[in-house]
């Protein structure tokens, strides 16, 4: 059995081979052949089964590898705090984002300017005269002075005398003077 399983060293295997070659050991020789054929059959069967499970094992190993990859994947770095760019950076970023629009505008402006230069005769020496309505100069503010009205005597009763009414204006306002002259006195 050890010879059939290749478990003997070379010297022992050679000695057993010489012994089996003898004519009286023909039965042992047949038994050795049978064991070897049986071994071949068993190995063939095992190889076939191994081939059958190889696919399933491959899928399993692939799944294991995937799980190992996930476990071994690096932890994502902390999300960086957004830094608000400066005014110049935002301006340049805006121009970068809208450079097509800016370029279109510049080209249009240039085209219009060129067209105006071509169409306008005399260039910058041209004088444009426009007539505008100029409102009259605002007079200086006059202090508000409330209008005055002269004193007015609505009724006058002077028993035993004669009444005379004087009214006059001065810079301090109006004045009314009622002077009664007794009847027994000559007027002033």
């Amino acid at each position: 059995m050890q010879l059939a399983d290749d478990e003997l060293d070379a010297a022992s295997a050679a000695e057993v081979e010489r012994a089996l070659a003898l004519p009286e050991n023909a039965a042992a020789r047949d038994r050795l052949e049978g064991v070897r054929e049986l071994g071949e059959l068993v190995r063939g069967h095992l190889e076939l089964r191994a081939d059958e499970v190889e696919d399933r094992l491959g899928a399993m190993w692939a799944e294991v590898d995937k799980q190992l990859d996930l476990v071994a994947a690096p932890v994502p770095a902390a999300r960086p705090v957004p830094v608000r760019p400066g005014a110049w950076a935002r301006l340049t970023a805006w121009f970068s984002a809208h450079r097509t629009h800016v370029a279109t505008g510049l080209v249009s402006a240039g085209a219009v300017a060129a067209l105006m230069l071509l169409v306008t005769p005399g260039g910058k020496d041209r004088v444009i005269t426009r007539t505008v309505n100029v409102s009259p100069p605002i007079p200086p503010t006059i202090p508000v002075v409330l209008k005055r009205e002269a004193p007015q005597v609505e009724s006058l009763d002077t028993p035993g005398g004669t009444g005379t009414v004087f009214t006059f204006e001065d810079d301090e306002g109006g004045t009314a003077v009622i002077l009664v002259t007794p009847n027994d006195v000559e007027g002033i």
């Binding site: 004193p151 609505e154 301090e172 009622i178």
Partner: peptide, 14 residues
């Protein structure tokens, strides 16, 4: 001596 009704602006003198 006198009995009169008058109208004057404020601050004027009678």
């Amino acid at each position: 001596v006198v009995d009169s009704k008058v109208s004057v602006d404020a601050g004027d003198t009678l």
